[in-house]
Every structure is written in structure tokens, then in C-alpha cells.
Simulated scan of single mutants.
Amino acid sequence: MTITEVAPPVAKSKPTRRTWGSVGPLGVGVAMLWLTIIVLLPLAAITSEAFDDGWSGFWDAVTAEGALNALKITVLVSLVVAVINVVMGTIIAWVLVRDEFPGKRYVNALIDLPFALPTIVASLVLLSLYGPNSPINVELNATQPALVIALAFVTLPFVVRQVQPVLIEIDKEVEDAAASLGANNWVIWWKIVFPALAPAVLSGAGLAFSRAIGEFGSVVLIGGNIPGETQVASQYIQQQIEVDSPVDAATVSLVLLLIAFVVLLVLRVVGQRTSRREELNS
């Protein structure tokens, strides 16, 4: 009598769950509809308002002395603020990532305070600190340095939060290897660390600049709103609304939007090229 070997039953494999790589046409439609309502329609409306008097009216509004002065002051102060925050924001991000000290988590949380604090409150605080009755005997209100301080306060987190995650991802073993081969701190920073940080630094600079040129609340009290001296573009726009010149207000607003768009586009292209170059060299 032979014994027949019975093969063990084959377990039926469970059907694999399909993972969708996109949200489908409905999701795309909802996203585009929301983008149109929130971004595109307001942009179209302000563009239409700016050209309400035709090209000549647009040009006259842009080249008016008050508009030119406000735009010049805004761009100049915003550039200074972006440069300052690129340096200080990168240093702060480095300290938060690479150093350990008491209260580090509270300092890390403090960086986001300008995001949560109403900007008018920031202006009031700065006025009380640097105003006529300054407790530290430093009176800066109604000066361009006051504008720099106010705008630096509200734009600092943009640089720190762009640089910080990149620093966390940088492999410290590469730095240690370079140091073991005799490279000093400057060579390590310039040849290894900074190329990896460059796209994030540029992105943070662009965001800080774009935020600064449109800022209103943080400078409304400390700035003084002196035409030709401390009046920024946002305050000039408010002034034109108050004197019933909506076309002039829309024109300057459109110019600010164009400046911000061009700056962000250029920095994005430069950042992408830098990243691509680093990938090819690695």
C-alpha cells in the first residue's frame, strides 16, 4: 500500500491595495478652482484696476514722485533686510541645529513668534522700545533704520525655517572627513556646507524680500510714514485709497506684485541650477 503525499494547500494571496499617485481629475479641478478664486481673480482685478485709465494713466501713476520715492525706499530697505536676515538667519539656524544649550527648545519656538504675533503689535512694541521714551535711550522711530528693524523682525523666520531642515540633513561625516584631511573651518564651510545650503538660503532670502516689500503693520507706527523718507509702498497705497485714488493704489500694488514675482522666479531658477550642479558634482 502506497502512501500518497498530499501537497499543503496553497494560501491565496490577498489582493494588493492599489495606491493612487494622484488625486484624479476631481482633485485637480478643486485645486485649480480654489487657486483661481484666491489668487488669479484678485490678480486679474488689480491688473484691470491699474489699467483703468489706460497705459498712459498707468505710467503717470508709476512715475509720480510719491510713488517712485515709496518704491525706492521699499526696495532698498527690503534688500538690506534680506541680506541681514540671510546672515543672521543662517547663523541662528546653525546654532539651533549644531549646538546644545539650556532653553534651546524655547528659542526654537520663539523663532516662529513673528508668524503668530499681529504685526501691528510688533510695531507698537518696537515703538515703545525705540520711540521717544525709549527705556534703552535709543530713539529710532521715523527713521529708515527703524524700518529695517521692524522688517527684519517679521521676516527672520523665513530664512531660519528654510535653512534649518537642510542643515539637519547634511552628513556631518563628510565634514569630519574633510577636517581629518587638514581642511580648516572656512574651507569646510565654503566647499562643503554652503553649496548644500545655497538653494535654501536663496529661497529664504526671496521669501524675506517679498514679505518685506508688502509689509504694512510692523512699520505703521515705528516708521513714521514720512513721504520721501520713511513712507513705504504699502503706506503710499493706503494714502491713495484715503484720497480716493484707487487707480494709483492699484498701480503701485501691481508693481509690488511684479517685483516679488520676478525676484522669486529668479531665485528659484538660480537655486535649481545650483542644486543640479551639486548633484552632478556629487
Rank of each mutant, 00 (worst) to 15 (best):
D53A: 14
D52G: 09
T90L: 01
V10N: 09
A31W: 02
L41F: 00
V30P: 02
I91C: 03
V10F: 12
L33W: 09
L76W: 12
A82I: 01
G29L: 10
F58L: 05
W59S: 12
A50H: 03
D60L: 09
P15H: 03
P42F: 01
E65D: 15
I3Y: 14
V23F: 12
G24N: 06
G21Q: 06
L71C: 01
T2M: 10
V75P: 05
G66E: 06
W59K: 06
N69V: 04
V80Q: 10
R17Q: 04
G66Y: 04
N69E: 02
F58S: 02
A61R: 12
V86P: 09
L71W: 01
I46K: 08
G66N: 10
T90N: 03
M88T: 07
P15W: 10
T36P: 00
V87P: 06
R17H: 06
I38M: 11
S78Y: 08
E5S: 15
G29T: 14
R17C: 05
N85W: 07
T2Y: 15
L79K: 01
T74L: 04
E65Y: 14
W20Y: 13
T74S: 12
I37C: 07
L71Y: 09
W55R: 01
L40H: 03
P9H: 13
A50G: 08
E5Q: 15
D52R: 14
K72S: 11
V77N: 09
T2K: 15
V23N: 11
V87A: 14
F58H: 01
T63S: 10
V39C: 07
V75S: 02
I38K: 00
M32I: 13
V77T: 08
L79H: 00
V30W: 03
V23C: 12
S56L: 09
V80N: 15
T4C: 07
V30L: 11
L68W: 09
G21S: 07
G54H: 08
W20I: 07
L41H: 03
V39P: 12
